[in-house]
């Protein structure tokens, strides 16, 4: 995948397939520690420990449509080639948390990319599911919680295309501000707003 935001979309879709009602996405960029952390937590059905051990193996999958599962394997490969790794914490009934780490400045690290498009796609395609997005960058942060939005926008269908378009615009603007707020570090790679694949 060309952008980490596409990996995020993919991992979140796993959570939705697992019957999650709330999915929490965290992105933490720490320049001082030269570390990027991405975590996706869902409150879906989880999985047995025996499955977790070998989860990044492409031949381990719960699916029935094909015999290989690539989502986590691809994320693990992306993290490992940037001196990072993935960690999966799961138990039946308590949901699943996938955490991926990267060396922030690693030459092979894909850009985060268009997070607004990922969130817009998720909100529009999954009306019953709630999403929390928390993005921290060197002490500053941006948070979006669709439960808050639904409360504030009472009576408005959050998944309708017009609303999602507005939301995506706001997310793009906010993330741009987040990135530009702290000087030139990493501005170039994570500031791409409109570009999509």
């Amino acid at each position: 995948m060309r952008e980490l935001s596409l990996h995020i979309l993919d991992i979140v879709e796993n959570g939705i397939t697992a019957g999650a009602r709330v999915i929490t996405i965290r992105v933490e960029e720490a320049s001082a520690a030269d570390r990027l952390l991405i975590s996706v937590h869902d409150d879906g059905r989880g999985m047995p420990p025996r499955k977790v051990v070998d989860i990044a193996n492409p031949f381990v999958t719960t699916r029935t449509t094909r015999r290989v599962g690539l989502g986590l394997s691809l994320l693990a490969a992306a993290a490992r080639r940037c001196e990072g790794d993935i960690h999966v914490k799961a138990a039946p009934g308590t949901g699943t948390e996938v955490t991926a780490t990267f060396r922030l400045s690693h030459i092979d690290r894909a850009p985060l990319g268009d997070m607004a498009a990922t969130l817009g796609t998720l909100i529009m395609g999954n009306p019953p599911v709630d999403f929390v997005y928390n993005h921290r960058l060197d002490g500053r942060e941006f948070t979006l919680d669709t439960r808050d939005l639904k409360r504030e926008l009472e009576g408005v269908d959050l998944s309708s295309p017009a609303v999602v378009s507005h939301l995506m615009e706001l997310i793009r603007r906010s993330l741009k501000e987040l990135v530009s707020g702290g000087g030139p570090t990493h501005t170039k790679e994570s500031a791409n707003g409109q570009a999509d694949d």
Binding site: E13, G69, L70, L74, T118, S165, D197
Partner: peptide, 28 residues
């Protein structure tokens, strides 16, 4: 239905979804 498996996402399902969203917003 936009199919959003790993394969779909890697092949470009997200821009397809976003184009669809724009068309939907316009068609109202």
């Amino acid at each position: 239905t936009v199919h959003m498996g790993t394969c779909g996402i890697a092949a470009g399902a997200r821009p397809v979804m976003n184009a669809l969203m724009e068309e939907m917003a316009e068609a109202d």
